[in-house]
């Protein structure tokens, strides 16, 4: 085949079907995750500063978080990550591609269950007046700072999770209806985001729920 013959042999729909290399979406999501690491990272530094400067306050406040619901939510998120990883594996295997939509719906449902549990937790904390401000029940310096960081980090995490649920649910619908925009490489990129949100929670769990439990 000569170089001159090549354009004529090109199928007419070649441009329309042109897709970027498989790596592009994954690399783009990793760069975005890099910026998110610095976004959440600043809050972790704030926590480190608070905990090292007001250890008694953080210990007294830390005992007021709900360790049962916190552990349940950790289990839900870890399970959702495993499910979405299985969805990605199925999307790369032609014979198992029919399971992708169902696994993505399951992932989104686990995310919704997490938000429901988180909402119950917030309700308990509101009823116990643990929201920082006048009438805060823990009278130790630094205790309110712990709850400022608690609501800030878990709130921002929940916002990220809502975005993740919307993205995963859209891809689940798209996969079930064989839409082109729900291609395996898009599922792969969205799954990376989901795992990142899970990793943030993995670190929040010991920092917010496991402080001074033994005393």
């Amino acid at each position: 085949m000569t170089g001159a013959a090549w354009p004529a042999e090109r199928p007419p729909h070649a441009d329309r079907e042109h897709a970027p290399p498989a790596e592009t979406g994954r690399l783009g999501m990793w760069i975005f995750i890099g910026s998110e690491v610095l976004f959440f990272g600043g809050l972790f530094v704030a926590y480190l500063y608070g905990r090292t400067h007001w250890p008694q306050g953080f210990a007294a406040a830390g005992r007021h978080t709900d360790v049962v619901l916190g552990t349940l939510n950790t289990g839900l998120l870890l399970t959702s990550s495993a499910v979405v990883a299985l969805a990605v594996a199925c999307s790369e295997h032609l014979a198992h591609r029919r399971f992708v939509a169902r696994l993505l719906w399951l992932t989104a449902a686990l995310g919704v269950a997490f938000l429901v549990v988180k909402g119950l937790e917030y309700r308990h904390e509101w009823q116990e007046a643990l929201f920082p401000g006048p009438g805060f029940p823990v009278d130790v310096p630094g205790a309110q700072l712990f709850f400022v960081l608690y609501f800030l980090t878990t709130g921002l995490h929940a916002v990220h999770l809502v975005i993740g649920i919307a993205g995963i649910a859209a891809l689940a619908w798209g996969s079930a209806h064989a839409r082109r925009w729900a291609a395996p490489r898009h599922v792969d990129a969205m799954a990376l985001y989901w795992h990142f949100v899970d990793v943030v929670w993995i670190f929040l769990y010991p920092l917010l729920y496991l402080v001074e439990r033994h005393s």
Binding site: V67, T71, T74, L78, T79, A82, L210, R213
Partner: peptide, 22 residues
């Protein structure tokens, strides 16, 4: 993936248990 999920849950409970030791 299955083994990783089981390991993650085991580590979560190990983390929870360690918090109750002084």
């Amino acid at each position: 993936l299955l083994l990783a999920w089981l390991a993650l849950l085991a580590l979560m409970f190990a983390s929870l248990g360690s918090a109750y030791l002084s």
